[in-house]
Amino acid sequence: MHTGIHGELLKIEHLSFSYEKGQQVLNDVNFMAHDKESIGIIGANGIGKSTLMKLLVGLYLNYDGVLEVAGHQVNKKNLNHIREHIGYVFQDSEAQLFLSTIEDDVAFGPRNYGLSEEEVEKRVTEALEKVHILELRKKQTYKLSGGEKKLAAIATILAMEPDIIIMDEPSIALDPRNRKNLITILNEISSLKLITSHDLDFIMDTCERTVLLDEGRIIADGATKEILSDRELLEGHGLELPLRLQ
């Protein structure tokens, strides 16, 4: 739920995490994020981007260090508070949509937070309008195209009006038109956004700040234009310049 919290929304200090002993996925990560920022998290496959995102929403709790979302330490006790502030758009939209129709799915979150039916209806309409699929509200989720599923998945999160939106590879499997549409939609959303992607052109279009991860550490954190135009830096960590800069 949108709380109107301003300033520091995410605080990560000396964060380390491993799935199994001896296999460190994240190692001493330090990171701050503020309201209305749009941050791209980039890095090669398997370097811990998705793990970091899942830690933020409390899907893994056995980490070391400090992890705070909207002023709440991420732990079992605070999970409900944290999840009211943060929305997670999965890489696989099909996993995100599990109810019969789009409107039911979008209403799932607001209903769980005990909002009145009038408020739920308002949230559903607004969220679907924001992603330009209001006319699909009665459509069965299994009949949607890949692009529509992605937009519907984003709407399920927008309806919760979170302070922070996390998106895992949002541009994956989208055709150029849907990709462009998604860029426009993301740029219209004012919440803090964390976007993980290998599509560096997409990151250029949506994020003003970029964080480069490798071997479980933050290698670079700065302006997107600077990081994504640094060929040596990118190639040294398994990435390449965005297509438009090649």
């Binding site: 929403v57 899907l59 409900n80 999840r83 009211e84 943060i86 929305g87 997670y88 999965f90 696989d92 996993a95 995100q96 599990f98 799932f108 979150g109 209903r111 769980n112 937070y113 005990g114 039916e117 739920v120 399920t156 999160i157 919760m160």
Partner: peptide
Amino acid sequence: DRAEMVYESMLLRGFKGDYVIPR
């Protein structure tokens, strides 16, 4: 794996063990 992802998605949208169905 897929079922776990669906369940995680439900948890992240406030699911606390009960479906809220409008009256």
